[in-house]
């Protein structure tokens, strides 16, 4: 009988959850800045998706055309050309592909590894918790960009290794967030109820605990994509990330750096695009945080 009552609370909890997301969406829609951020990101994603249609990769993005070197913005080349005579706009939208892919996959990796470790630590507690969290402390003792640099240098700089390195370097923050939110709910009634009807640990973690830890992870993840894009650009800028001639925002900056004097546009535009992208993600992340936790907002 008691179980039945508990199950009902579990159900109530679920419907409450669903309407919570509707409420969050409503609050997001009201937040103009967040919508601006979302708009920018949608445009960027569309450009990245249709990059090949807008500008063929081999002919425009990769092929050098030395007669067109370092030309300023014009009707034909909106953002000018780079040191090899390639169209900067085309390279930027193909670069968006790389950046978004790295950003999302890297954050996915961090969330998966960090989230699992955090959930396991909180769920089992005791020694397991201690071991995992001390390991996170060790990772945290090295600034994450340096950790990423070290990992890439060990693994070699391929696209996947880059994602892995950036992903691993921010594992600890997700582990901490997820651990904290799991700790705050693991003793609540509806978890007990699930356990009482014989759900095993795996089901409890995936069905009940993860959905509850979702809100802070989404916020951190959005801001994390921004961080990962910045790291990618940074690593590529110092030559440890995406290797030329592949178009990447950071390596475009590195390439244009030597020509600051004669061609300002080569370094200005890719950087501007990075800034706008990060700005948009920050706006979206801030908006999500306010929408998910209205208490924080006045």
């Amino acid at each position: 009988m008691a179980n039945v009552a508990n199950l009902q609370t579990a159900d109530v909890k679920k419907t409450k959850k669903r309407s919570m997301w509707v409420e969050v969406a409503r609050r997001m829609a009201k937040n103009k800045m967040a919508m601006v951020g979302l708009g920018i990101i949608v445009v960027l994603v569309l450009l990245a998706l249709f990059a090949d249609v807008i500008a063929p990769y081999e002919e425009v993005v990769i092929k050098q055309n030395l007669s067109m070197r370092l030309k300023g913005p014009s009707a034909e080349h909106w953002l000018g050309t780079d040191e090899f005579g390639r169209d900067i706009f085309a390279r930027i939208i193909h670069g968006a592909r790389v950046s978004l892919k790295v950003g999302i996959v890297a954050v996915g990796i961090s969330i998966f590894i960090g989230g699992s470790l955090g959930a396991i630590a909180a769920y089992y507690g005791g020694k397991v918790d201690n071991l995992i969290m001390r390991f996170m402390d060790i990772l945290l003792a090295v600034p994450s960009i340096l950790l990423a640099i070290a990992i890439v240098s060990a693994l070699g700089s391929s696209l996947f290794n880059l994602m892995l390195a950036i992903g691993i370097s921010s594992v600890p923050s997700y582990a901490r967030i997820v651990r904290a939110s799991v700790l705050s709910i693991k003793d609540q009634e509806f978890i007990e109820a699930a356990r009482a009807i014989g759900a095993n640990d795996f089901i409890i973690i995936t069905r009940h605990i993860i959905p509850n830890a979702l809100a802070p992870v989404i916020v951190q993840g959005t801001l994390g994509v921004a961080g990962a894009i910045l790291s990618t650009a940074g690593l590529s800028f110092i030559g440890l990330g995406i290797q030329p001639p592949a178009p990447e925002w950071g390596s475009m900056l590195a390439g244009g750096r030597a020509y600051l004097r004669e061609a300002w546009h080569v370094t200005t535009f890719p950087g501007l695009v990075i800034m706008i992208t990060i700005l948009a993600l920050n706006l979206l992340g801030d908006g999500l945080r306010d929408a998910l936790d209205p208490k924080l907002k006045q």
Binding site: A233, L253, T267, M275, L279
Partner: peptide, 13 residues
């Protein structure tokens, strides 16, 4: 939102 290294380049410019 501004990457540091780009900001640096712009200051140099």
């Amino acid at each position: 939102s501004m990457p540091n290294f780009w900001q640096g380049l712009m200051y140099i410019l």
